[in-house]
């Protein structure tokens, strides 16, 4: 499913996705990690806001991240 890897800002809404990468900035990566963003974990993009921010479902929690940050992390569709 290599071809299905996309940046999070390109990910479809509502679909369960596998987290493939973490942000390069270690501080941001750590912050996201503490909110449940870890490689291999699952995430769903619930909504895009007016400013471009993405509302995510991360382990049942709702987390908002900016569009710029969403561009820097990758996710992969779950086969099937």
């Amino acid at each position: 499913m290599q071809e299905s890897i996309v940046a999070l800002d390109q990910a479809p809404l509502g679909e369960a996705l596998i987290i493939v990468s973490t942000p390069q900035d270690p501080i941001v990566a750590h912050k996201m990690m503490t909110l449940g963003w870890s490689k291999g974990g699952q995430v769903r993009v619930l909504k895009k806001t007016v400013g471009g921010a993405r509302i995510l479902d991360l382990n049942g929690s709702r987390v908002a991240i900016s569009k710029a940050l969403a561009r820097t992390v990758c996710v992969e569709g779950i086969p099937g």
């Binding site: 942000p23 900035d25 941001v28 912050k31 996201m32 909110l35 921010a53 509302i55 929690s61 709702r62 987390v63 908002a64 991240i65 900016s66 710029a68 940050l69």
Partner: peptide, 10 residues
């Protein structure tokens, strides 16, 4: 500039 990463409490 810090990118937005924020927990949205219920």
């Amino acid at each position: 500039s810090e990118p937005l990463v924020i927990d949205l409490p219920p």
